[in-house]
Design a protein around this nucleic acid. Structure first.
Lengths: 362, 362
DNA sequence: TTGTAGGCGTTATCAT
DNA sequence: ATGATAACGCCTACAA
């Protein structure tokens, strides 16, 4: 403890510089005083108001730089009634999804004053809705982005609207009108993957579907069935089982599929985790992938690339969705932001890797 | 455009209730007026001030509930000079790490008014420091948590201190004094893993180290070498190679190790991604894991559990670290929060799975 | 093009 | 135990 030290010693020599008049955290008043203008004029400078004599602006900008002045966002929020925070509300999706969407959002808000607030919620718990409501009430965010599966909750979207909080819902298919929705087209993506399998000659294709109540699960299943119907392929019974999007359920589901007689020559799992589980199940039965069994996943997480053999999978455009959703939210918040209309439906892509091949002769 | 509609129609019938006097977003003034007290008294209620007649408090709480009044955090920030946002600054670590630490932090701030703001930065870019500084300047966070590897940047910590922003640095070993650091003990964790291999009879153990400049890489290497020295094991040359923590580098590094004559009977990779790469390399050479080669990873990401065979690995306590770091940051922010001192060093754990076994006879 | 006055919703100071 | 008044730093009206 050094008794003689002071946190900001007064430096007398500084009297020659204008900085000596300013505080540690200079405010708009400090800038105004030093520049010899009113606060309002400084305000115009920091808000890029066009009606300003260029020379006045220059002078003020100089003072701002000299002082290291930074506008106080809290004060601005208070005055304008809207703050510069956008929220991401999600419910336990996988980590790659979270990271991807966060990166997309951050691309969109780079160069703005917006910051991203994260809020995971517990979809299952009874207090969830109160919890979210409380969060929205207190933080008064500019807007929020809802990640699936919680984005599918209409009541939540309703809440946001009532609270005057802008929102954009993300999903596997449009969940709302264009202004409030950004989605992929999972049905089509899975249909494409299924056509790929059919094109290679597969006719007995097992589906490991996602859990009941998930829109993504429903969409993917629809796409699967549509592609089969389109090709005139009829599946024997027992070729569709449900998993819960987790690894272990993939093992169990694949085991059930492989117990069928005859077993499928290919399995399409509705996410990569379950596809990885299917791979395990195949290995347990000494099946070689893709010789004895082809496997397709969904999401293109890093797991897909790292298992053996690397998984053919559908790349889910989560990052682009995050970017688009954030831009949609921010459209209108700043003059330059509402130029281009953001897409509401983003394309997926089939990523071919080594887990798929033609069926063995039978 | 419906010209006659008003957003909040005045409902005359409501005159009987006190609510009719309040606005859509009631403020502390509304509460004060309706309760017949001053704003300050209401402020005391919402801030749990002890000096209040219990009956006054009850009355005010009733009005608050009736009105659905929620304090405006922005206004409070302005008045108190500190806001209720804490930040997480990170630089491209893997997604599980991000999710884990976020969950830990959110456990800690649950039931408080704090919210979590995420800020990824680009460590490599020249403008990184300016970028972070700008972020801290503008958002004026209550405090920030620094995730490795960016947490190892002393200049950044210095910046935070100068800006008056509280901070806690997370890492593989203490990076700062106890008040500003939460870490694991990676050296010890790797030493334990190495002892495990030695105990099984391995003597030629290859190390796939992490990239230069990462504290975690240095710590893990130290632990490895320490355990060998402790057991009197001398490694032939060429048994240590460096990767960059990514899957592909794991393949390359393992290939180089397996090219040695004689090759190692076990490989310790400094993270799971590289360990998964080593698994690929082994498969390419038709080696069976663990019969021909044992492999150990680090982190215990989901990849570790999903590859074949499942990886023995070190569980890195990232979630607990996040929780502890957030609590440390918040200690003192509220009376009830600074009760228990938070741990600064958290234990790791060796997770035994199927990728390790005794060396084959040779 | 620039300035003045007032308000945003809260807490702090100093009263009573 | 409670209240009046003045910040906090910015922005919006309106005025000049």
């Amino acid at each position: 403890m050094e008794l003689v030290s002071t946190e900001r010693p007064v430096r007398l020599a500084d009297a020659r510089t204008s900085a000596a008049l300013a505080a540690a955290n200079p405010t708009i008043s400090d800038v105004a005083r030093l520049a010899g203008v009113s606060k309002k004029t400084v305000s115009r400078v920091i808000n890029d108001s066009p009606q300003l004599r260029i020379e006045t602006r220059k002078r003020i900008e100089l003072v701002i730089a000299e002082l290291g002045y930074v506008p106080n966002l809290q004060a601005r929020s208070l005055a304008t009634g809207r703050n510069s925070l956008i929220g991401l509300i999600h419910d336990n999706p996988n980590s790659q999804m979270i990271l991807g969407v966060q990166q997309g959002i951050l691309e969109a808000i780079r160069e703005t004053d917006f910051a991203l607030v994260i809020r995971p919620v517990d979809r299952g718990s009874p207090g969830m809705m109160d919890d979210v409501r409380r969060f929205l009430d207190r933080q008064r965010l500019y807007g929020v982005m809802l990640l699936p599966p919680i984005s599918e909750n209409d009541e939540l979207a309703q809440h946001c609207a009532e609270l005057g909080c802008r929102y954009v819902r993300m999903g596997s298919a449009p969940l709302d009108d264009d202004a409030h929705s950004v989605s992929s087209n999972d049905a089509e993506a899975v249909a494409e993957a299924t056509r790929h399998l059919i094109g290679l000659g597969h006719r007995r294709i097992g589906l490991i579907a996602g859990p009941h109540g998930f829109r993504s699960a429903a969409e993917r299943r629809v796409g699967f069935l549509a592609a089969l119907a389109e090709a005139g392929v009829t599946l024997p019974p027992g070729m569709t089982v449900r998993g819960d999007y987790r690894f272990d359920s993939g093992i169990a589901a694949a085991s059930r599929l492989l117990d069928q007689m005859p077993p499928p020559t290919a399995i399409l799992a509705c996410n990569d985790e379950m596809a990885a589980g299917a791979l395990h199940a195949a290995r347990q039965r000494n099946l070689t992938v893709p010789r004895d069994l082809s496997i397709v996943g969904f999401d293109d997480t890093s797991t897909a690339a790292h298992v053996w053999p690397p998984l053919t999978t559908v790349r889910w455009p989560i990052q682009a969705m995050g970017r688009s959703a954030a831009r949609k939210l921010l459209a209108g918040s700043e003059p330059r932001m509402d130029g281009v209309t953001q897409p509401s439906v983003l394309p997926s892509e089939l990523v071919m890797r080594a887990s798929v091949g033609p069926p063995a002769m039978s």
